[in-house]
């Protein structure tokens, strides 16, 4: 008898739980200015008037939170809140958040990069896209232990060649999480906050909602500091990296809701 009761209670709990949440799929759309990003073949120009193309573009998004008008928030569970978006890998650009509680949301915020806690976490907490022996192998500095947050590489004819630089390649690898303990380093962790404007995200039971976030890579080079590729073809863990992080702080924007993934790609083609 008792057993049946327990069964009933847990069943109804499950039902309730299932009923009170939906799914949100985020589609990250990498762009350069108003154009869709195309690797290798397409030419772009930065604010300094320098031509370049992009061979690699990837970044971490983490600690996603959905905001409500009353100031409360839904935080995606910590362990499920790390994503590595790679331009070469279309699958990585779709991020699915399950069990988002039913409700009306007015905006989203997330960290560009990896929070300091996870940057210093022990190896058992570095799974999936954080696995230094797996997906994260090219997004991790082993000698100055920490994740690379945003990475863009490409070529530009303005880069002068010399003994150390045999190809006109630029590399922008931006990381540094502030260090730990008495080890203080530069802190390039940035948080982005996007409002849905007049629109609201109404999460319904057992429903999947779709949303586009645009990532404009031109902000890596253009912004409060306009970066000259010729002068700075390689920026990594040095002080100058802070300028780029300040620039890319605004590279994300809200790109609207969609009814399905198909309509997302339609919106995308329409935009081109």
């Amino acid at each position: 008898m008792k057993n049946i009761l327990i069964l009933l209670v847990s069943f109804s709990y499950l039902m309730l739980n299932a009923q009170s949440s939906g799914t949100l799929t985020l589609q990250f759309d990498n762009m350069v200015g108003n154009e869709d990003m195309v690797l290798n073949t397409k030419n772009y120009k930065n604010a300094m008037g320098e031509d370049f193309n992009i061979s690699l573009f990837q970044y971490y998004v983490s600690n996603i939170r959905l905001m409500k008008s009353d100031g409360s928030e839904y935080a995606v569970p910590q362990n499920e809140s790390y994503f590595l978006i790679r331009e070469q890998d279309p699958k990585s650009q779709t991020v699915t958040l399950n069990n988002v509680p039913k409700g009306k949301y007015t905006g989203i915020r997330f960290v560009i990069g990896i929070d300091s806690l996870r940057n210093t976490a022990d190896i058992s907490q570095r799974k999936g896209c954080l696995d230094v022996g797996g997906e994260a192998k090219d997004m991790y500095w082993a000698w100055n232990s920490g994740y690379i947050f945003v990475k863009m590489e490409g070529t530009s004819p303005v880069i002068e060649l010399n003994a150390d630089r045999k190809k006109p390649i630029f590399m922008y690898h931006i990381g540094l999480f502030g260090g730990m303990g008495d080890k203080k380093t530069l802190n390039n962790i940035k948080e982005t906050k996007l409002s849905f404007g007049s629109k609201k995200l109404k999460v319904k039971d057992n429903t999947t909602h779709y949303m586009v976030i645009k990532t404009d890579a031109s902000h890596i080079l253009n912004g409060s500091t306009n970066i000259s590729i010729a002068k700075n073809p390689s920026i990594m863990a040095g002080p100058f990296s802070a300028k780029i992080a300040d620039n890319y702080n605004v590279m994300f924007s809200f790109g609207g809701f969609a009814k399905s993934l198909n309509t997302i790609s339609e919106t995308k083609t329409a935009m081109k």
């Binding site: 210093t120 230094v132 082993a142 303990g181 080890k183």
Partner: peptide
């Protein structure tokens, strides 16, 4: 802290450094 400059803050993570440094073992973990 590990290494002469203390760039690595956990022993478990140190081995990634010699393994992926081209002058050292020149191999990547995967």
């Amino acid at each position: 802290d590990f290494g002469w400059d203390g760039g690595v803050h956990h022993l478990d993570l140190f081995a990634v450094s010699p393994l992926t440094n081209p002058a050292e073992m020149d191999e990547n973990l995967p």
